[in-house]
């Protein structure tokens, strides 16, 4: 239990998927313009990461990993080269389902997220979550906690950034730094603040 709490805190703060690994930058920069949309996309990413990471865990460990097909009697097959394409397809399917759900229940969020909801399918944070899960050899429970934690960390970052951008409306930015550029600079400074937690091991 302590290890799971530690893993969760680690994936939210020290190993924040956005501020420590810089994954999922494109939608982070684009959507953080508006706080409400940012919260919506944050929840969407939390949901998609929490679902896709364990699902990909199951698929990897029972279909793709070396020797994973032993249950079907063909233990010497190694399909792990299919990892990327299979993970992406699972993510795309999940995002499709989520899109239909949001369209049904919250029209304003659906309109606000616009093109970026389908783009979660190619959000590197989501695929990164699944690939980290394989690389760090998590167990199934750990993959659920990690997926959830990574999503919460991403959401924390985008919500903080959206609020910072509200404050930055009063800033007097030099010509050319408006928009993406200043967001990247602030992201870098935020990452420096998050380095606070690097090195903690519970």
């Amino acid at each position: 239990m302590v290890e799971l709490v530690s893993l969760f805190l680690n994936s939210v703060f020290a190993g924040n998927i956005l501020l420590a690994y810089f994954l999922g930058m494109c939608s982070f920069v684009a959507i953080s313009k508006n706080l409400n949309t940012a919260i919506g996309l944050g929840f969407a990413v939390v949901f998609v990461l929490t679902v896709t990471t364990p699902v990909n865990w199951l698929i990897f460990h029972y279909l793709l990993a070396p020797g994973a097909l032993a249950w079907a009697g063909i233990g010497d097959v190694n399909l792990s080269f299919l990892r990327l394409i299979v993970f992406i397809s699972v993510i795309a399917a999940m995002v499709q389902a989520l899109e239909m759900l949001i369209d049904r229940f919250s029209a304003s969020l659906y309109a606000g997220l616009g093109i970026f909801l389908p783009l979660i399918a190619v959000n590197c944070a989501i695929l990164g979550g699944s690939l980290f899960m394989v690389e760090r050899e998590y167990t199934f429970i750990e993959s659920v906690v990690f997926g959830f934690g990574a999503g919460v960390g991403w959401m924390l970052a985008i919500v903080a950034m959206a609020a910072a951008r509200i404050k930055m409306r009063y800033a007097d930015l030099p010509y050319g730094l408006d928009g993406f550029a200043i967001t990247m600079i602030v992201t870098g400074l935020m990452a420096m603040g998050f380095m606070l937690f690097s090195g903690i091991s519970l």
């Binding site: 706080l35 919500v159 903080a160 609020a163 910072a164 509200i166 404050k167 400074l189 935020m190 420096m192 603040g193 998050f194 380095m195 606070l196």
Partner: peptide
């Protein structure tokens, strides 16, 4: 030092909320 920088990140969010 880093604790203050870290809280600087969230100060606009706290204010807004």
């Amino acid at each position: 030092m880093l604790a203050i920088l870290f809280m600087n990140i969230f100060s606009p969010l706290m204010e807004y909320t």
